[in-house]
């Protein structure tokens, strides 16, 4: 079986851990528990009849208390930047992290706009959002709470990770 390391990156409190929990264990908790350091989970997906074991590196959110650690990207086949559509600032911070990753390695990326179950209270217009989306290989709107699009998004991520080493 092929194993692929993928990293979940983004600002604090956007729902990275919740997305992993929903995908791997099928559960969601309303209670926010901040991640410290790194936690790795595994799940096998099938892409074009090929079984891929995704190693999901869920990293502590980047903020004033925790800087972004590029060394954890070593050996990653793809990454996602998770942002929260109820906090405009998370998109700006997500783009900054994206820029830092791009300086470090050239691997596929996916922009995930999470918390789609809530009203989008950020001020980004569709055009502005499109502008940001263009910097990524793919984008997805997800809700870790309802599970909307989570499975599809991780499958897309697996395809990107698989494709990046096929080329």
């Amino acid at each position: 079986m092929i194993a692929k390391k993928v990293c979940l990156l983004g600002p604090t409190g956007v729902g990275k851990t919740s997305l992993v929990k929903r995908f791997v264990e099928g559960i969601f908790s309303e209670k926010y528990l901040t991640t410290i350091g790194v936690k790795i989970d595994k799940k096998t997906v099938t892409i074009d009849d090929t079984e891929i074991q995704l190693m999901l590196w869920d990293m502590e959110g980047t903020d004033r208390y925790c800087g972004f650690q590029t060394r954890y990207l070593r050996g990653a086949a793809a990454y996602i930047i998770v942002v929260d559509q109820t906090r405009a600032q998370t998109l700006i911070e997500g783009m900054e992290i994206h820029k830092l990753v791009k300086e470090e390695c050239d691997i596929p990326s996916l922009l995930v706009v999470n918390k789609s179950d809530l009203d989008a209270s950020w001020h980004w217009t569709a055009d502005e959002l499109d502008h940001y989306k263009r910097h990524f290989n793919a984008t997805a709107m997800t809700s870790a709470k309802t599970g909307e699009n989570v499975e599809t998004m991780f499958n897309d991520l697996a395809s990107l990770a698989f494709g990046s080493t096929q080329e």
């Binding site: 604090t12 926010y32 528990l33 903020d63 208390y65």
Partner: peptide
């Protein structure tokens, strides 16, 4: 420590 701090920030 960070739980409180981050809840505040968010």
């Amino acid at each position: 420590t960070l739980q409180s701090a981050r809840e505040l920030v968010i």
